[in-house]
Design a protein around this nucleic acid. Structure first.
Length: 109
DNA sequence: CTCTTGACGCCGG
DNA sequence: TCCGGCGCCAAGA
C-alpha cells in the first residue's frame, strides 16, 4: 500500500485499529504503549492520518473530544455502546489496553 | 535553524 | 468549576 507513512504513524494507527468497539484509549495511554511520541505526537498523527481508523475510540484523558468531533463521536459511542457519563466517555470504565502476551488468561474485561 | 500551532496531560490558584 | 502555566513531541512556515 501507500507506505508513505512513518513507522510512528503506522504504530499509532495500528494500535487504534486494534481497539475493540465499546472501548476507548486515551492519547497518553497510546503514547505510553508506543513508548514514544507523547500525547501530542499521537494527536498529531490522528489529525493527519486518523481518517481511516476508528478515531472516535481515541479520546482525551477526560473522555472528551473537540466540539466538532464530539458530534460524530457521540453517534459512534451510542451505537457501539461505549459507557458514557454525562454525555462523555467514562474513561475509567471504557479504557482498554492492547492484549499483550496473553494466549490464555483472566480476561481483563 | 527558529518560531508557532496543535485531536494532550498534569498541577496550581 | 474555570483559567493559566509548564512539559511533552511532531509538523509546517
Amino acid at each position: 500500500m501507500s507506505d508513505s507513512l512513518d513507522e510512528f504513524t503506522e504504530a499509532v494507527l495500528s494500535l487504534v485499529e486494534q481497539i475493540p468497539p465499546g472501548r476507548v484509549m486515551t492519547y497518553g495511554v497510546i503514547a505510553a504503549h508506543l513508548g514514544r511520541g507523547g500525547p501530542r505526537g499521537v494527536g498529531g498523527v490522528m489529525a493527519r492520518a486518523g481518517h481511516g481508523v476508528p478515531w472516535w475510540r481515541v479520546v482525551r484523558a477526560n473522555g472528551t473530544l473537540p466540539p466538532h468531533l464530539m458530534i460524530d463521536a457521540q453517534e459512534h459511542w451510542h451505537v457501539e455502546g461505549v459507557p458514557l457519563v454525562r454525555g462523555v466517555v467514562d474513561v475509567d470504565a471504557a479504557l482498554w489496553e492492547p492484549a499483550t502476551t496473553r494466549p490464555v488468561g483472566p480476561a481483563p474485561d
